[in-house]
């Protein structure tokens, strides 16, 4: 599993970094960044899905 943030959709809600602080961070403007490049370890898959489900902007993309 890999995660990406759609920069055009992200509005900096930060719900992803609250749900999954291991995976998501913040850039200078407070918009989401992905902290883990490449495949996510399996123990973080559930958190990635939770971050995606909690994003009010539908900005989290999960590739499996």
């Amino acid at each position: 599993m890999r995660v990406k943030v759609d920069a055009d959709s992200c509005q900096g809600q930060q719900m992803c970094s609250i749900a999954a602080p291991e995976i998501f961070g913040s850039d200078e403007l407070g918009h989401a960044t992905v902290l883990i490049e490449g495949d996510l370890p399996s123990e973080l898959h559930a958190k990635a899905r939770r971050a995606q489900a909690n994003c009010p902007e539908d900005a989290i993309i999960i590739e499996e």
Binding site: Q11, N54, E57
Partner: peptide
Amino acid sequence: REHNRHVAFGSGIHR
């Protein structure tokens, strides 16, 4: 609560 896609801070460009 696990799934909480709340919009207390709004949504879209005026978040």
